[in-house]
Write a protein that binds this DNA or RNA. Structure first.
Lengths: 205, 205
DNA sequence: CTATGTGAATTTATTCACAGCA
DNA sequence: TGCTGTGAATAAATTCACATAG
């Protein structure tokens, strides 16, 4: 295979494939074709094959893909082949829902620390995680936590993001509606739930 | 302007513009140029102008855009110019966080009803909304609620989505990791938080 | 024969560059 | 002059179509 820059869209789809494959694996499936996987996901089979081909291709011609092998490969690409420790900053309504959310596990993501400013929350334990003061954020470097979920109020977002970066965090899932200004070696993915709901009326009403 | 199919990507960006413009308006700003708005959002100015041009263009040459006018126009395009009533199905951790989330208001979205199966939750009031039995979902048609947020367990997702469609809902924000099979006049936007976090390690670790 | 892997073709989205209007 | 609106150019992503390997 010749050199190709890997499209961002391909990376965006990998976790979708992974989720479906994990489900199939759980059901005891061993093999899958691009055609069938595409049908399950509503994608085009060529797109699936092309996505995998950027990484060398994981299939067997005439046969298809071995599901567990494919899972291993995608996890490796996404660097999810080892457990990734994550910190949560801001244990409000959304934050505490996230602390209790079980959907991260399948991806090898584990929330290992939670922080808040409110004295009434500090010390409380949610889902086995003791809430710490945000002043303890600097300890993330020592604890080798490189990922963070930010769910503080909007006006505290930039400030806390800055602290996270200073504490060695290099990837932030920003659940606030704030635009974060960050050094460009830091990856920020912003996810404002309201913005998704706001697109629905256009299509349907 | 000649006829153009409006790109989905344009629609995806409109709520981003709207959010920023609302913020600027709040701060008392009156006018904005595509150049400045682009700078705020990290976009290309031509893209912003082109996005607006699909709808006829809202600016004044040599001057820029009148912020409040632009807000009005975007809201109209997104059909957010009147309050859109939304139902929440599934009042678990995530669901109750959403019931208490204040970020929908700026878009004219209001959660007006919440449903769950659990007898221990039915009748409870969260943020002014009384939780009803899912058996009451059929009443959505009468109550003219056309949008829904689905945050039930994965294995209950399809079933509840079907009920929603039968109750007249035409747009669903699917917060479960389930693939929903729906008639194609129903718009589903799926948002699995874990999938966003799962992309971070690729970029940064 | 079957289903992958991949150049080529096509479609879609972004950016350029400038005409046109306040 | 200054900034919009927009065709044209470019870039990116998707899909086709087929050679190739099992």
């Amino acid at each position: 295979m010749r050199y190709h820059k890997i499209p961002d869209e391909t990376i965006r789809r990998l976790p979708i494939y992974l989720r479906e494959l994990l489900l199939l694996s759980e059901k005891g499936q061993q093999k899958i074709s691009s055609k069938l996987l595409a049908e399950f996901l509503g994608f085009n089979p060529a797109q699936i094959r092309k996505d995998f081909s950027y990484f060398g291709g994981f299939g067997i011609r005439g046969v298809g893909y071995e599901i567990n092998e494919l899972i291993k490969n995608i996890k490796k690409i996404l660097k999810l082949n080892i457990v990734r420790k994550t910190a949560l900053v801001g244990v409000g309504n959304l934050g505490s829902a996230i602390l209790q959310y079980s959907g991260f596990k399948v991806y090898g993501l584990e929330i290992k620390a939670a922080f808040d400013t409110s004295p009434s929350k500090i010390g409380k334990v949610i889902n086995g995680i003791k809430i710490e003061s945000v002043s303890k954020l600097t300890g993330l470097k020592r604890r080798k936590i490189k990922l963070a979920i930010l769910s503080v109020p909007r006006n505290a977002a930039q400030e806390n993001a800055d602290i996270l970066v200073n504490s060695g965090v290099s990837g932030i899932l920003n659940l606030t509606p704030a635009r974060l200004v960050m050094p460009k070696n830091i990856k920020v993915i912003t996810l404002d739930i309201a913005m998704y709901l706001a697109r629905l009326p256009y299509y349907t009403l």
